[in-house]
Design a protein around this nucleic acid. Structure first.
Lengths: 139, 139
DNA sequence: TTATTAGTCTATCTTTTTTATAGGTTTTAT
DNA sequence: ATAAAACCTATAAAAAAGATAGACTAATAA
């Protein structure tokens, strides 16, 4: 399961994407609209900013905004940033690989093989689906 | 990511499946063979037994054994038992559903839609692949 | 130039989950 | 009877998740 952090991030990004034309959006507005603790959300948005996904403006009229169009922000990127690996096992992770300590040879491990397929199936969706694809339908 | 508990369970089940013809297998043998803490493994095997996946025999000549042939034990069942939901979000989980508290209407939530697809793609593999499919190749 | 607004930064705290261990109890074969 | 091996319950230690606090900095407007 994705952490609350990542779930909140998705909802916040959705709100930002649905309001791209309105300039910078307040943290407090997102928090209220999406029912998220404002202080927790603050940290999350900052992390997204430091990763280059969001930009921000301080002072009156300030807030957060997307650095790229929604269709260029893949869901996999957000998950990896805030939650780490998408794979179910460390030994099949592309970005956070760790050797399996319970099997003797990954090359002939059937678990490794099946979990690689699960990873590929998930990635096929998460790498190709973007913020644009998760906006509220009918808006 | 799957918890260590689930990872250990898979490796233990693989060992049991690869030795079905040898009668009950000792916890200590599995622990040693797979490099798992014996006491931790004890709890895991007990849980698998209480779920009807394993059987056991006490006393001398005792140990654990599979209750069904490896090809009848789906990977999804093990994961759900020890790790809970396979879905990435509570609101798209088939077995552990919880309403989303951050969006107003799941029916039009694009995140819900994409995550349902990810769940389906993973389940297609995890429900159909069994213990038999994860045995060490070439054995 | 001062007051206000709003993001930035760092630290801490609480709770929950995960991982692991300890030690006694029961069952069974010999 | 004895030894072997699973059973059971409790607890502890560590890590991660979730949340909060408060001082700081930058931008804007009056």
């Amino acid at each position: 399961m994705l952490s609350k952090k990542t779930q909140y991030a998705f909802h916040a990004l959705i709100h930002l994407a649905e309001n791209v034309d309105k300039g910078p959006i307040l943290i407090s507005e997102i928090a209220q609209e999406k029912n998220i603790s404002i202080k927790f959300l603050e940290n999350i948005l900052l992390e997204l900013k430091n990763a280059g996904i969001l930009g921000s403006k301080k002072g009156k009229g300030g807030g957060y905004y997307l650095m790229r169009p929604p269709k260029e922000i893949a869901l996999a990127k957000i998950i990896r940033l805030l939650d780490g690996p998408i794979a179910l096992l460390p030994c099949v992770s592309l970005n956070y690989y760790e050797r399996c300590e319970n099997c003797k040879d990954e090359a002939v491990c059937g678990l490794h093989e099946v979990m690689s397929k699960v990873r590929d199936a998930s990635l096929k969706l998460l790498e190709n689906k973007t913020l644009k694809d998760i906006l509220t339908r009918g808006m």
